[in-house]
Each structure stands twice: as C-alpha cells, then as structure tokens.
Design a protein around this nucleic acid. Structure first.
Length: 403
DNA sequence: TCTGGGGTCCTTAATCTA
DNA sequence: TCTGTAGATTAAGGACCC
C-alpha cells in the first residue's frame, strides 16, 4: 500500500443527476426551467421516483408521496416514468463509460462504479479522468453526471454525492479522514431511518464522533454485522474491487390498487396476471424457482409475506398462481381490505440436464449407521414387508455421524 | 405526509434431521 | 424405545437501496 510498487488504487463512482427527470427535460424543451416530477400522477396512489433540482427547491424528493409533492408544488410538471426510454439512454451511457475503462460495475440504470487504477498514464491524474468522464457523457447524451473518485468504493460514492449536481470530487488517500469526519452519519451506506434513530439516541451525529465509539457499544444496539460495517465505514475502510453482475436472486411483480379491495375474485384475477408476468420473465431468463412468495398489504399498510417451497422448481404461471392462491387462503391472514398484492419466485435450482445425475450412477459408499436405527429398520421391515425396507435403504444413503 | 415497485441482505424463530 | 442436541433448512419480517 504505502511505498510498494503496487499502483495506487482509484475507484470512480458516476451518478447521473436526477436521471428520469433530466431525460424528460432534455427531450421536451417546454420543461426547461420548470420543476419536473417523475412518478405517480397527482390524485393517484404512489410516490416520487425522481425530481429535478427545480422541484427539489420546493422540498420535493424521491420516495415522497405524490400528494405531498403536489401540495408543495402544484405547478410542477408531473410525468409517469418511461422505463423503456431510460433503459435505452442508460445503455448508451454505459457504452461511453466503457470507453474509459472496461472494468465497470453497474449499480442501477443511472449509477456505476469504475476501476480507474492505472489509467493515469493514458488520461492523466484522477481529476482529469473525472473531467473526461463528464465531458464524454455530456457530449454523447446531453446529460450531466456527478463523479466521485477515491481509493475505494465508499469514498468514491460519498465523493459523487458531495458535489451534486454536475459535480466532480477527488479524494486522495491522505485526505480520507478529514473528508469523512464532519459528515453526518446518515451519509453512510446502509444507514436508513431506523438506524438514524438509534444513532441520535446515542448522541452520535458525525462520522468523526462515530469513530470514537467502541465496537462493543455499537454491537449492543445494532447487531454484530451492522456495527462492524459502520465502524469500518467511519474509518474509511472499504473494498476497491468491482463486483461483476451476480445473477439475480428473485423475480417478483406486485401492484397497489387505486382503492383497497375486498372481493376475492378481483384478488385472484390480479394474482393471475402477476403470476403470468413473473412466469414470462422467468422463462425469458431461463430460470425456475422452487420458492413461491405471496406478498400482501392490507388497509393501514400492514404487510405480510407467505412463502412455500415446492418439491420441483417452476416457471409455470399455473403452478405459481395455484401456490400463491393457496398461501392466500391458508396463510392465516387477517380478513381486511387489501391495498397491495404481489407474487414472486426465488431459490433457483439446477435443472435436470445439469450434473447431479452422475451421482445416481456412483457406487453407494459404505456408510456407518447407528445400530439402533438399523435394528428399527429391520423390525419395521419384518412387520410391514419390502416397501418399507426400500425406504429404510434410501435412508442409509445419507451420512450419519455416530457420536 | 400517507406511504410504488423491484430488488438484496440480515435477523430471528420454528422445524427438520443426523 | 426413549432422549437430547447441534446444525441445516425453511419461513417471516424488516431495513435498506435505487
């Protein structure tokens, strides 16, 4: 790290500014100089997905209920998101990023980490690399991006946030501690509303303060994992490795009703549509899931999930619907009007054509078996005949550790 | 304020099994 | 036949992110 021959690691974080809103504004000149809010339309259930900086001046921010946004700024432009369009724009921008470095980790449509290590000879110091990224994206897409560059992912991400919008921030390794110290702890990764409450109860406001709190104290309030994570973050310790896309873990689809629903027929019809969509996406991605999950939210925002593991993984909409509906009927759920219903599958398993098969042809190894178990099997077999004996034999295939 | 949709990961509890 | 138990697996909920 210090004076070794290994090159200083540089990680970049690029984050498009108010992405959805900026794309809409770029494509529609009438929206210039106006507050733009993308999300639900006023009068409907939903929240803000993106707000441009003019809208933010009114206190509007993402995840705010649309009714509240409307109250704050009835004159804003309100738009439904056009995900297909944003995906197209996003692909183009990722292509541009690919001209800087091939080592990119996409985080979402509008955000990515870049490994910039060793690019100095080609593009100059980190600040020049950052300017180059911003320049190329603006040229190609007409959009502004905020870029943070630092010795690891955490510092890069906090850097890009620091100078938004249209910002560029480079934090050198020897500046990390002073960069972090005055920051509110709320800026740290994985620190949301609930954890903020805990920190404020403990009187911890800044990252500098957090640094002085013993790990033990943090563990008492946050659990071991979170405590360690926040302590490391406070010290500026984080990975600088890119994590290339790790396949998805689940596919789900859910919908909120405009008005809460009581009728089972409507619920089942809706579930059917959702199951069909999930199955379609699973088949397109050639995935079969063994776990079906039903999600349901009642009046009052009371949310429950029920899940069931199938013996055989599926991407068949009929199976998904059947399981989800059974979970709804037998899941011991309150009988209240339903606000949201959703269904998903997860727990991908190997398909029939994959390995595993080979195991069947292997000579079963001799295994030690608990004497008592053997005796039991014999006795049961004597009494009930061969069918049971076979069952007993399959049981012996499992390893059994005698004490 | 009245809270979308699509995800991931973590914690905890109950249940199964060797 | 009974019993205790550690570890794995399943299930539910919640925090968080974009």
């Amino acid at each position: 790290m210090t004076h070794s021959h290994r090159a200083q690691r540089w990680v970049g974080h690029a984050d498009l500014d108010a992405f959805y809103a900026s794309v809409e504004q770029r494509d529609c000149p009438e929206y210039r100089d106006r507050p733009v809010v993308v999300g639900a339309l006023p009068g409907h259930r939903g929240v803000v997905a993106a707000a441009n900086y003019r809208a933010r001046d009114f206190g509007i921010h993402s995840a705010m209920p649309i009714a509240e946004a409307y109250r704050r700024c009835p004159d804003a432009v309100y738009l439904r998101p056009d995900m297909a369009k944003y995906s197209r724009v996003s692909r183009k921008i990722f292509q541009i990023l690919g001209t800087i470095t091939p080592v990119i980790e996409p985080v979402s449509v509008d955000e990515a980490y870049l490994d910039l290590t060793g690019l100095e000879k080609l593009l100059g110091p980190p600040a020049s690399i950052g300017s180059e990224i911003k320049h190329r994206i603006l040229e190609a897409s007409g959009l502004t991006v905020s870029v943070g560059i630092g010795p690891n992912r955490l510092i890069a991400k906090l850097g890009s946030e620091h100078r938004k919008p249209d910002g560029l921030m480079v934090v050198h390794p020897d500046e990390v501690q002073e960069f972090l110290a005055p920051m509110p702890v709320a800026n740290l990764r994985g620190l949301g509303r609930q954890t903020q409450k805990i920190f404020s109860r403990l009187g911890i406001r800044s990252v500098g303060q957090l640094r002085t709190v013993p790990l033990q104290i943090l563990e008492q309030h946050l659990g071991t994992k979170a405590a360690l994570s926040f302590q490391q973050q406070a010290l500026g310790i984080a990975s600088s490795e890119m994590v290339p896309g790790r396949g998805r873990k689940s596919i789900s689809k859910e919908t909120t009703f405009e008005e809460d629903v009581r009728e089972q027929e409507i619920l089942r019809d809706t579930l059917h549509k959702l199951a069909a969509e999930v199955a379609k996406r699973a088949r397109r991605e050639q995935l079969s899931g063994a776990v079906v999950t039903l999600k349901i939210r009642f009046t009052g925002f009371e949310t429950h999930t029920r899940q069931h593991k199938l013996p055989v993984p599926t991407h068949d909409e009929r199976v998904i619907l059947r399981e989800a509906w059974a979970l709804f009927l037998n899941g011991n759920l309150p009988s209240k009007p339903v606000r949201l219903i959703g269904v998903g599958i997860s727990d991908w398993q190997q398909t029939e054509t994959e390995p595993m098969q080979a195991d069947l042809f292997e000579q079963p190894k001799k295994r030690e078996i608990d004497d008592r178990l053997l005796k039991t099997i014999d006795r049961v077999a004597d009494r009930f005949g061969k069918g049971i004996l076979q069952l007993g034999c399959t049981a012996t295939k499992n390893t059994h550790k005698p004490r």
